[in-house]
């Protein structure tokens, strides 16, 4: 509630966003960029995984229902990779049922957000969900 995010709080952060919906990608990318993040996007799981390998982002926002590799398969592969496994993965999906939520968390996502996102609070909500991760929290404190 009391959490506030500075306008350049995510400056220098590399973030990967993966979604097969270009509109969604554009909105998320815009909102993250407003806080200074360096946003890399992919439209399917497979290229998303390659991008994560290339970019080594601070965190990943990923859709679930995607072609080639689904969000769940993606998170499993990331968590199985010793180099990438520390990267927080946040699910952003139009699936609103509790079962979907539970399945995503058990697959390895750190948190789950339901579409449609609320532009005014999206980034704040996103970051707040990751405050329990030490390197995210300490990275925020440096600013």
């Amino acid at each position: 509630m009391a959490f506030q995010l500075q306008p350049n709080a995510l400056k220098g952060w590399r973030v990967v966003v993966i979604d097969d919906e270009p509109d969604s990608l554009e909105v998320v990318k815009f909102l993250l960029q407003r806080y200074g993040a360096e946003v890399h996007t992919a439209t399917d799981g497979q290229s998303g995984l390659a991008l994560i390998n290339d970019v080594r982002p601070m965190f990943v926002v990923s859709d679930l229902a995607m072609p080639k590799i689904t969000g769940e398969e993606l998170v499993r592969r990331v968590k199985d990779d010793r180099v990438l496994s520390h990267i927080p993965m946040i699910a952003l999906s139009a699936h609103a049922k509790k079962e979907d939520y539970a399945r995503a968390i058990s697959a390895g996502f750190h948190a789950y957000m339901v579409k449609p996102l609320r532009p005014e609070t999206f980034v704040k909500d996103l970051i707040r969900l990751m405050l329990d991760i030490p390197h995210i929290a300490s990275a925020l404190e440096k600013e």
Binding site: E21, D23, S24, V27, V28, F30, L31, R34, A65, A94, H95, A96, K97, V114, K115, P116, L117, R118, P119, E120
Partner: peptide, 24 residues
């Protein structure tokens, strides 16, 4: 209903998202 919810949310995400951006 679950599918409908999913299918409605996807365009709504874009609508609300872009309008939000416009209002910002």
């Amino acid at each position: 209903l679950a599918n409908m919810s999913h299918e409605l949310r996807t365009p709504l995400n874009a609508i609300i998202g872009f309008v939000g951006i416009m209002l910002m």
